[in-house]
């Protein structure tokens, strides 16, 4: 099976435009970008995909060994890039995918000319001189919480129907795939995500980067966003008025407005 099918890759927008790749975070799938990605379809080749084990990805895409670290997920991103022949593209990562993008950019810098990190955190657990926002026992608690929620996950998700009566086909698609995840894989992804530490990688990522930080983000506090922007050699921070961890869902207009000048401000031909 080819990599595009494996990761449920969908390509929209201008076929001859600069590639803009959107990566979802833990707990969701590419539908996370449904209010944001369309805003770039006029001038970009927009690429959406699902991480292994999430959404419409092929169950066989997940490899316990490969995906035991974020590097494995970064390699998936690069495999997709290779299949789509991406060069000097834009990578937009939400939450943990921000770090996945950073790792991909480190491994093959020519793939992306711009990184956008939405609600990033290089490390969730507090450390000496660093506040990530969580203790180790907090993360244990999360894994327990996943266990009890995944117990009835599949049956609970099935009847969920989105209020979108004018486009029934979308309804069906979303019911079918939004947040559909193999519980065992999701749990391992949670463990990999919330025990990761990419602080040492950030200073080495020279790609121009935009960090979007919400106010009152329970997962990635403001100080963490500031840390990311300050640690990367070529990053700038934009504070959003939106609250929570998912401005791509809760404040899509503001998110689009923040990303647009950063990705449109540079002409790939002139660079």
């Amino acid at each position: 099976m080819d990599v595009l099918t494996r990761h449920h890759v969908r390509v929209t927008g201008r076929p001859d435009g600069r590639t803009m790749m959107f990566a979802h975070g833990f707990g969701c799938d590419q539908h996370m970008w449904r209010f944001v990605a369309p805003a770039f379809e006029d001038d970009f080749r927009v690429v959406l995909f699902d991480h292994a084990g999430a959404g419409g990805s092929d169950p066989k895409a997940y490899d316990e060994r490969r995906h035991s670290s974020l590097e494995g997920y970064a390699r998936d991103v690069l495999d997709i890039c290779a299949a789509l022949d991406v060069a000097d593209g834009v990578f937009v990562g939400h939450s943990v995918s921000s770090m996945i993008g950073a790792l991909a950019a480190l491994a093959e810098p020519e793939r992306f000319g711009r990184l956008v990190m939405v609600s990033p955190s290089p490390r969730y657990i507090d450390d000496t001189g660093y506040v990530g926002g969580f203790s180790e026992s907090d993360i244990r608690e999360l894994l327990d919480s996943l266990d009890s929620n995944y117990l009835g996950w599949s049956s609970a998700m099935a009847p969920v129907i989105m209020a979108n009566d004018d486009r029934p086909e979308l309804q069906e698609e979303l019911t079918d795939s939004f947040c559909r995840a193999d519980p065992a894989i999701a749990r391992r992804f949670a463990e990999v995500t919330f025990t990761s530490d990419n602080r040492a990688d950030l200073p080495r990522v020279g790609t121009p980067t935009l960090v979007l930080q919400c106010t009152q983000d329970a997962i990635a506090p403001v100080t963490v966003g500031q840390y990311v922007a300050a640690t990367m050699p070529n990053a700038s921070l934009v504070m959003l008025e939106a609250t929570g961890h998912c401005p791509n869902l809760s404040a899509p207009e503001e998110t689009v407005a923040a990303i647009a000048p950063f990705v449109r401000g540079c002409d790939p031909v002139a660079r």
Binding site: G25, F26, G27, C28, M32, S95, F134, S135, D138, I139, R140, E141, L142, L143, D144, S145, L146, N149, C179, F194, D217, A218, I219, G244, H245, C246, L249, S250
Partner: peptide, 13 residues
């Protein structure tokens, strides 16, 4: 804390 992460990553979306 664990519930908050779950809230942000699953519940709220």
């Amino acid at each position: 804390a664990g519930g908050r992460i779950y809230h942000e990553t699953h519940y709220a979306p």
